[in-house]
Structures are given as structure tokens and as C-alpha cells.
């Protein structure tokens, strides 16, 4: 007579055959997508912290407007564009995408769970696409929810103009930022075996681009070597490698399409990213800005998209060929 345990195992086989045709069969990719998005990313504390960080800067800027005070800048994008462009989309959003995206592949390889995953009927290509899509959804939802909240709160505090314009400009720009930084994070996640490296390299790129270069760029733009009358930034064509320049050059493209051009207040902001040269007339105390069109906005956008796509492809080929073991 078979033991109870043997009966259980026998029953398992029969049950699967019998009821296997009843349920709704899905694909392993969808299951992996749901697990990655809802179990790994959308953890309530993780999302709340990310959300607060995303809105913190703009929210403080809105709350700081004294009651009854009349702003010099009545357009919402002119008022919040700087803080959104620099704080949210140059620092916080890329850092969140890196911290969430970089471990997606690297951590599974390091911990050994990837070995279990690839023994299931799902290809490595599907694993990558699924996890990338989950990261895209997380980033998009985080961004659109925080941007929507700010867009809704701002008019309650002050009667801003161009609310919809602000929303569309920043949404379009955030899509470029998201695609670029999540691709970098994901690409390095496939390239590096250690999670630490996969996070550190994109973080270094963010720090160099938005901290170190922000400090030294004005110097390079006005400093000359010897008798040369061309500034270092132009002489060595540093703009080719200046990620911030290309990102905000694309931003100018969006402003041109949505607002029909760059407002005066935006010039001061975009000057910091090497897109304009500032000249000060000490007699008239007037400041004039000259556009540095080393690249067209479309050219910069294509360059950014190409780098991001190349990193994803490189990561894909490395991951596909990688030997995975404990």
C-alpha cells in the first residue's frame, strides 16, 4: 500500500493533467513582469520615498511663494522649470532609476536566483525585455504621478499661466531623461557581475555630469590657453562629451515645439548647461545670451538615444553569452 506522501505525489501529476486545461494560461514573461514590477519595485516604502524625493524640491518652491505676492514670472514653467529640470530630472529621477534599475539583472546573477530563473521556459532575451519594461512602467508611473501632483498643486497656491504647457514640456523631457538613464542603469546591470559596480558607474556619470561639470563648465567656456582666443570648451570640443549639454539641448527642442521658443528666464538656467554664452556689458549693465549651437536639438536627441540604445544592446549581447552559475 502506498504511503500518504506517495499518494500526494501521485495526485499532483494527475491533478495537473486534469485541471491544466481549465485555467487561463499566461506567458512566463507576464509572470516575471508582474513579479518584478509589483514585488520588487512597487514596494510601498520604496515608492513613497521615491515620490517624496521627486516632488520635494518643486513643492518647497511652490510653498515658498508668500501669500498675496505677485511673481515676476507668471508662467509655471518659467517659475518651476529650473527646479524641475535640475533638481528632479537631472538628479533625483536619474538616481532613482539607477538605484532601482541597476540591480535588476546584476543582483539576480550575484545572488544566484538567475540560475533558477533561466532554468524555466523563458529565454534570456525575454527576461531582459520584461525587466526593462517593468522598469519603464515604474519610472513612468512615478514620474507622471509626481508631475501631475505638482501641476495640480501649483495653481492652488498661485494663479500661474501655462499649466498644460508646463505639464507637456516636462513630461516630454522626462521621457528622454528616463529612457537615457534607465538604459544606462540597465545596460550596466547586464555588463557588470557585481551590483555595486552596476550602481556606481551610472551614479558616477550623474555626479560628473551634473555636479563636477556644472562647476567647471563655466570655467572651460571662458578660459583660454595661451594666446588662443577660443575657449577650452570649444578648442577641445568638450561639448561632444557633455551629456548635460545634449540633454538640455533636447529640452530647448521641446521648448521650441511647445512654447515656440526659450523664454528670457530660461536663458539663465540653460546658460549653466553650456547652451548659451553670457556677455555682460558693464556700461549698460545688460546681459546678452548667445546660443551655442554646436549641435541642433535633434542632433543632441539622436546622440542621446543612440548612446542609450547602444548600451542596452551591449548589455543584451553580454547577458545572452554570459555563463551563469553559483
Amino acid at each position: 500500500m502506498a504511503s500518504k506522501s506517495e499518494d500526494t505525489i501521485n495526485m499532483l501529476s494527475t491533478d495537473f493533467v486534469r485541471s491544466g486545461t481549465k485555467g487561463i494560461i499566461t506567458t512566463p514573461s507576464i509572470i516575471l513582469f508582474k513579479k518584478t514590477l509589483f514585488k520588487d519595485m512597487f514596494k510601498i516604502h520604496k515608492f513613497i520615498i521615491s515620490f517624496i524625493l521627486m516632488i520635494l524640491g518643486p513643492l518647497i518652491a511652490i510653498l515658498m511663494i508668500p501669500p498675496g505676492y505677485e511673481l515676476y514670472l507668471s508662467s509655471l514653467n518659467d517659475y518651476l522649470g529650473l527646479i524641475y529640470g535640475f533638481y528632479t530630472y537631472s538628479l533625483i529621477f536619474p538616481i532613482i532609476l539607477t538605484v532601482i534599475g541597476a540591480p535588476l539583472i546584476a543582483e539576480e546573477i550575484k545572488s544566484g536566483t538567475m540560475l533558477t530563473l533561466i532554468s524555466k521556459p523563458i529565454s534570456r532575451g525575454e527576461i531582459l525585455i520584461t525587466k526593462y519594461l517593468a522598469l519603464t512602467c515604474f519610472g513612468f508611473f512615478l514620474n507622471i504621478s509626481s508631475l501631475s501632483l505638482i501641476t495640480l498643486i501649483a495653481p492652488l497656491k498661485y494663479t500661474f499661466d501655462g499649466i498644460a504647457e508646463f505639464f507637456v514640456i516636462n513630461l516630454l523631457f522626462s521621457l528622454i531623461v528616463q529612457f537615457f538613464f534607465q538604459s544606462i542603469a540597465f545596460g550596466f546591470s547586464c555588463i557588470f557581475k557585481k551590483t555595486r559596480n552596476a550602481i556606481l558607474v551610472p551614479l558616477l556619470i550623474i555626479i560628473i555630469t551634473f555636479f563636477i561639470l556644472m562647476t567647471f563648465r563655466p570655467l572651460f567656456m571662458y578660459m583660454y590657453l595661451g594666446d588662443n582666443e577660443v575657449p577650452i570648451y570649444v578648442q577641445f570640443q568638450l561639448y561632444h562629451f557633455d551629456l548635460a549639454y545634449h540633454l538640455f539641448n533636447s529640452y530647448i527642442g521641446i521648448l521650441n515645439i511647445i512654447s515656440g521658443g526659450v523664454s528670457e528666464s530660461m536663458l539663465y538656467f540653460l546658460y549653466g548647461f553650456g547652451l548659451y554664452t553670457q556677455e555682460f556689458d558693464p556700461d549698460t549693465w545688460e546681459v546678452t545670451f548667445t546660443r551655442n549651437d554646436y549641435y541642433s536639438p535633434l542632433g543632441s536627441l539622436i546622440l542621446i538615444l543612440t548612446i542609450a540604445a547602444a548600451l542596452i544592446l551591449l548589455g543584451y549581447f553580454i547577458f545572452k553569452k554570459r555563463d551563469i552559475s553559483r
Binding site: 481549465k22 487561463i24 494560461i25 499566461t26 506567458t27 512566463p28 533558477t116 524555466k120
Partner: peptide, 13 residues
């Protein structure tokens, strides 16, 4: 349950 689902086993079972 997660691994079962990855192996195409319907949610119901």
C-alpha cells in the same frame, strides 16, 4: 506559486 506560474501553470491551480 511564482515558479509554478513561470512554468505556465494556470493561476487557478
Amino acid at each position: 506559486t511564482y515558479l509554478a506560474r513561470l512554468n505556465l501553470i494556470p493561476k487557478s491551480i
